[in-house]
Every structure is written in C-alpha cells, then in structure tokens.
Design a protein around this nucleic acid. Structure first.
Length: 464
RNA sequence: GGCGGCAUGGCCAAGUGGUAAGGCAAAGGUCUGCAACACCUAUACCCCCGGUCCGAGUCCGGGUGCCGCCUCCA
C-alpha cells in the first residue's frame, strides 16, 4: 500500500507501527449544523480506506471526534436559546443519521470534547510543565517559538508565517502565532474547572488529547480535508510532539475539496449543498460513487448533471448484480464445467486490478473502473456459463470490491401480490399475442416505478 | 508576497517514458412482438512554446489559464 503523505509530499510505502494494526484518526464534524457534501468527502474516503484495510486483514482502530465545544456551537446555541450541549447533541444525532444513510460505518469511538476535558487539561499541563505553553490570567497559549519545527507540515517557513500573521488585537500573547489551548470563561459560555481557572479548551488541543487517549502517542494515519493542514494539523503536531517528545503521525492524508462552478464549496461562501437535501433527490450510493469516482486528492466539481451521470453508472452496476441474482435463481444445479472454472478464476484478474488501484494511494477512480470492467466481463459470459455454482462464484467475486467501496448494498425487496398478479397477467397476454394489453400493464407498472424486462429466463423487474 | 495543486474526447475521469482505462451522453447495429437490459462498431493531434530521450500526456525549462492554503472551514 502506498499513500501520499502531506508531510513529505510524496507517496510512501505504508508500514504500520504495529504489525497488522492500523491506528487512524480522522477529524470529525463540529456539530452546530447539518453537514454538506464537502464535509462528506473525507468521511466517505476514509471509510473506504478503513474498509480496505479490514478487507486486507488489518486490525483497524478508527477514531473520529465530535467537536462539541466551540465558538460556532456557542453562538448557534445562544441564538436558538438552548444550551450548547442540547445543540450539539441534536447535531450529533443528525450527523449519524446522514452518515448512516451514506453507508459510513461508525468509528470505533466518537469521542466528544465535553467528555474528555480531563485528557485535554492533562495535555495542557504537560505542555506548561515543559515550557511549551504559558498562562496569562487564565488564558493558556502554545509557545510556538519553543517548537522550532512549527510549519513543517504546511511547509510554511516560520518567518513568513510571522510576517504574514494578522495583527493581533490580543496582546496577551508573546507572539502572534501562539494559539489558544485554554480559553478563560466568559459569560454565556460553557466552562470547566482547570488549574488556570474556569474555562474551556481551544480548538486544536482536542485532537491531540483524544488521539493520545485512544490511540497512543504515535499513530499511523491522520486524515482530514486539505483546509485543515494549516493551522489545525500544524498545531496538533506542535502540541503532541512537544508534549510527548515523539513523532505524532506517520502518514498525513488530506483530501481535496468539492467545488461548485470550480470554486470551493464552503459554508462561508454559502455555495454548499447539504447531504440531507441531496439525498431527497439522489440515492446515497450515488453520492458515494460520485465521491469515489475521482481521486481523493483532486478537486471534485459538483453539479446536478454530474450526479445524474453517476446515477446512470450506478444503475449499470446494479443491473450486473441483479442479473446475476436473477440468473442464479433460475440456474440449474449442474456441476461447473472446466470452462466455467477457468472463467471464474479469470475474474480474479479484476479483483487484482481493484486491489492494485486501491493500494496506489487509494485510487478509487481506477478501482471503480475495474468494477465496471468486471461487470462487462460478467455480462458477456453469463449467457454461456449457466451453472448455479459458476454464477454464484461470479456474484461473490463481483460483490467483493463493491463491498469495500460501500456500493450495491441495496437488494430488491419482494413484490406485492397485486403487482405479481399483473406481471402474470401480462405474461399470459404476451403468450396470447395480446400485445396491447401487455404494453398497457408494462406502462402501468412503469408509472408506479417498476420497470419490467423480458429475458430468456422470464420477467425481470427493478425499481426505477 | 510565501507555499501548493490543476489543465486529457460532447460531459465526467484514470494514466507507473514505449504509439491514450473506465463511466455518462449521442450514432449505427445485434437481441426483442415492441421495448428495456445486455452485447458489438466507429469516435482524442492529451492548454501553448522550447528542451532531454530511440521514444513524453507522462521528465526539465518557459508561457497562458484556473483553483486552494497562508483567517473559521472537510
């Protein structure tokens, strides 16, 4: 497995710290709102990476936090006249609803800031004790000048950062680059006790603290969107490495943005599309396939048109799956011929292609194409290979990569008796060459969202 | 200003220096009672100009255009 490491700006061979184990931390949502398509990209990408590691037999420890203490949450809660806790609980539930709809598996843990104040305070104490942080009247800041490697992830020379830094209104800091670890209590904000008085954690410290609490001082993979590289991840490195005296992360993975009209989708620009709204119009797997159809580090342009294209492609994959199921149902229980054996073994080539793509820096776009190629292979040969065993083998083979990608999870439910009766009636009409009646029934069912296809083995149906 | 990314057929999009994957759409055909599905067929001077090389979409230099980070942001 090769992964592009933001730290070194190149693809590197993945070697886990512990044999056969992957420790992953992915920055989760700040829960003050529903999440949008841009937010969904890392969730889906890293979900697929995690699934792939599991598929390859790794023991994956996957942590994704919920930021439930934050300025935006406080503001939104005050506006709504509820507590921060009430607001964040609501949006955690909403996050899970959308994430589950998108087929994103739950992390092994979703730690919340509000439940890890002790870990956070402990980490800040370590930093203060080692001279990497200082307290000014209840506000604690990280002393950037004490950490010479600051800027190594974003490749920002310290001097440039200094000169580019905004003029601070706050002159408590020793240096404008110093950032908040602990914020002194203000009226109307949630607070906890600490050695520096009442207050709450700054934004960056939570990931360092919770990552250490759940995964240890050095982890394999840390993921997130490119916009987190600076300052968030840069600050995480400073905090963790200063406190622990050890490397924090082996591989830094950052996904590209989702654009609208070639401009970054973001809340501040207001050009975002909520997952909730997209799912009113499109199947969640369309969203998944859309995101996976482009390499994760490239920009991905969103439009209704592109989702429609993807929708048609997904339908093609479902046709392969459902054709196979239909044929398996109608197949004969005869022994696999030598020919069939050879063919089912040859299908393995597509699995190999799939794995090769995935292992080349998670090239899901290419991985998806091998799924399409396998589908075509199956469509071509499925007429000549008719034993149940061969068809079942093809099905199992086809579903393997699909499962890693989190696609093709839906199955055709059973039909109502009324509809089955109509289908039977239409078959009789066709046998009687009453094509007018047959077409009538087909149109009727089509209007109800059921599409009929006549095949050698009988009538197939699917939902439109 | 500093750091970084991108430019491939009508649209989307892969591409490890050796004469361009895959998907969508449109066209013709096969199959079908008609369809649908599926299959078959045709379809790309890889933004421009130089350079290296037997050979470059792929490497180097220079342009042009677009985007991102440097401030909350996936």
């Amino acid at each position: 497995m090769r992964l592009y490491n933001t730290m070194t700006n190149q693809k590197e061979d993945f070697k886990p710290i512990e044999e056969n184990t992957v420790k992953m931390y992915v920055c989760g949502p700040t829960v003050y709102n529903l999440f949008h398509l841009g937010n969904a990209r890392p969730f889906i990408i890293f979900d697929v990476l995690r699934r792939y590691f599991i598929y390859k037999g790794y023991d994956v420890k996957y942590i994704q936090n919920f930021t439930d203490v934050d300025d935006k949450i406080i503001n939104a809660a005050n506006e709504a006249g509820i507590t921060s806790k009430e607001l964040s609980e609501k949006y955690i539930a909403e996050y899970l609803t959308d994430a589950h709809a998108l087929g994103i598996h739950d992390a092994d843990a979703n730690p919340k800031v509000s439940e890890h104040i002790k870990d956070i305070v402990g980490l800040i104490e370590d930093l203060v004790a080692k001279g990497f942080a200082y307290n000014v009247d209840g506000n604690v800041y990280f002393r950037v000048s004490a950490f010479p490697e600051y800027g190594k992830l974003s490749k920002q020379p310290l001097d440039d950062l200094m000169s580019g830094a905004r003029i601070e209104v706050n002159d408590e800091k020793e240096n404008p680059l110093d950032f908040s670890l602990w914020k002194k209590y203000k009226e109307g904000e949630p607070y906890w006790d600490s050695p520096w008085g009442k207050g709450r954690p700054g934004w960056h410290i939570e990931c360092s603290a919770m990552s250490r609490a759940y995964l240890g001082e050095t982890i394999d993979i840390h993921g997130g969107g490119q916009d987190l590289v600076f300052p968030h991840h840069e600050n995480e490195i400073a905090q963790s490495e200063a406190a622990n005296g050890k490397p924090f992360v082996k591989y830094w993975l950052h996904n590209g943005y989702i654009n609208v009209d070639d401009v970054k989708m973001s809340k501040s620009l207001g050009n975002f599309f909520m997952i909730r709204d997209i799912l009113k119009e499109f199947d969640p797997e369309v969203v998944r396939l859309f995101i996976l159809s482009v390499h994760y580090r490239n920009p991905l342009n969103f439009s209704d048109e592109s989702l429609k294209q993807i929708e048609s492609g997904l339908e093609r994959l479902y046709n392969v799956k459902n054709d196979l199921l239909f044929k398996i149902e109608h197949a004969q229980n005869i022994e696999m011929s030598t020919d069939e054996k050879q063919w089912t073994e040859a299908l393995q080539k597509h699995i190999d292609d799939f794995e090769k793509s995935m292992e080349d820096d998670i090239n899901t776009a290419k991985a998806v194409s091998s799924l399409f190629e396998m589908g075509k292979d199956i469509n071509i040969h499925t007429d000549e290979h008719t034993s149940r065993e061969a068809l079942q083998a093809a099905y199992d083979c086809f579903m393997q990569p699909a499962k890693v990608l989190g696609l093709l999870a839906k199955s055709n439910e059973l039909l109502d008796e009324d509809i089955q009766n109509l289908i039977d009636e239409r078959q009789q009409a066709r046998a009687d060459k009453d094509f007018k009646r047959a077409d009538e029934i087909r149109d009727l069912l089509k209007a109800e969202g059921i599409i009929l296809e006549d095949t050698r083995e009988g009538v197939k149906w699917k939902r439109s």
